[in-house]
């Protein structure tokens, strides 16, 4: 019904307004928006070509020509920092929704289905979560090689696993409620029950979870780049830049500091946004009085 669509758009606007009213939301959203704008505009506004090397000045400090100095090959650090988040943002920006969708749907289905498939799947999830950090990622990448076409599905797969857990827990709470019983008693198909009754009630949880996953995935991506499994040189990437510049830390500290600051502001921004989103959605708007 059109009323529902209207109220969804209205709700999104209301949530955004409430988030901006919180300090965490205002700072977080500003940081994220700035980063996104920079990533979009950077190819046109960077002062230099990211590949062009200036053999005369390698590892220089800040100057009027190179505000953040140059790296060991004489490339402009500012240019590379401005461009360095693009690849990470594109890949994680696609992989996060994919992870949320597959993990979320699986979790919701398991929460509704219960019984042995749920048992078995949760044991498998537990086993995966017990593996240390990015180890499984490294294994897959060594087998299939690096590059976006491998990184994207790999990240989406591994970051979707913990989402199963969260979605299942959220769905469990909803499944226990009478409106789901009512739908079962009427005889709706499980697919309809998931779509109409359960998903609308777990999207809030999944949205907040998605924002958190995104920041972790960015961190994971940068870690892979740092280890040399991510973006191939000479393309600029924060993880790679830190990895290259850390040897010259004492000579040109900005080569490390600049990409680290860029990455952390983005991650902090996302975290603050997720936090504000959670707080805002916590005050469930559907329960608020109309007056």
């Amino acid at each position: 019904m059109s009323g529902a669509a209207l109220s969804t758009a209205g709700r999104a606007r209301g949530v955004l307004r409430d988030m901006m009213a919180r300090p965490s939301g205002a700072i977080g959203l500003t940081l994220v928006t700035l980063h996104l704008a920079l990533a979009l505009a950077s190819p046109w506004i960077v002062p230099y070509d990211y590949k062009s090397m200036d053999a005369t000045g390698t590892l220089t400090g800040p100057s009027a020509a190179h505000w953040l100095g140059t790296d060991h090959l004489g490339r402009d650090v500012l240019t590379r920092v401005m461009l360095g988040g693009r690849e990470a943002l594109v890949i994680t920006g696609i992989a996060t929704p994919v992870a949320m969708i597959w993990g979320g749907l699986t979790g919701v289905w398991l929460g509704l289905r219960g019984g042995w498939p749920d048992e078995v799947a949760m044991r498998v999830v537990d086993a995966f979560l017990a593996l240390p950090g990015i180890l499984p990622l490294l294994v897959l990448i060594t087998v299939f090689g690096t590059g976006g076409e491998v990184l994207l599905p790999t990240l989406a797969f591994f970051f979707g696993i913990p989402v199963i857990r969260v979605a299942r827990a959220a769905a469990h709470e909803v499944v226990a409620r009478d409106f789901v019983s009512a739908a079962r008693a009427r005889g709706h198909r499980p697919f309809d029950i998931v779509r109409r009754e359960i998903l609308p009630n777990v999207t809030d949880t999944l949205l907040v979870e998605g924002a958190m996953r995104w920041s972790w995935m960015l961190l994971g991506f940068s870690a892979l780049s740092f280890l040399g499994f991510g973006v191939a040189p000479p393309r600029p990437d924060w993880g790679l830049m830190v990895s290259d510049a850390r040897v010259y830390m004492s000579l040109a500290p900005l080569g490390v500091i600049a990409p680290v600051v860029a990455l952390s502001t983005l991650i902090i921004g996302i975290n603050l946004t997720a936090d504000a989103l959670a707080k805002t959605l916590g005050l469930d708007r559907s329960r608020k009085a109309v007056i």
Binding site: M1, S7, R177, D178, H188, E197, S286
Partner: peptide, 28 residues
């Protein structure tokens, strides 16, 4: 199923808080 319908104790629990009244009635 159509011939037997159930009404639950607490409407806060038995109505989906995310569906408008129109959507709720549209289900059956």
């Amino acid at each position: 199923l159509r011939r037997i319908q159930m009404i639950f104790q607490n409407p806060d629990e038995s109505l989906n808080p995310r569906q408008s009244v129109g959507d709720i009635l549209a289900q059956p």
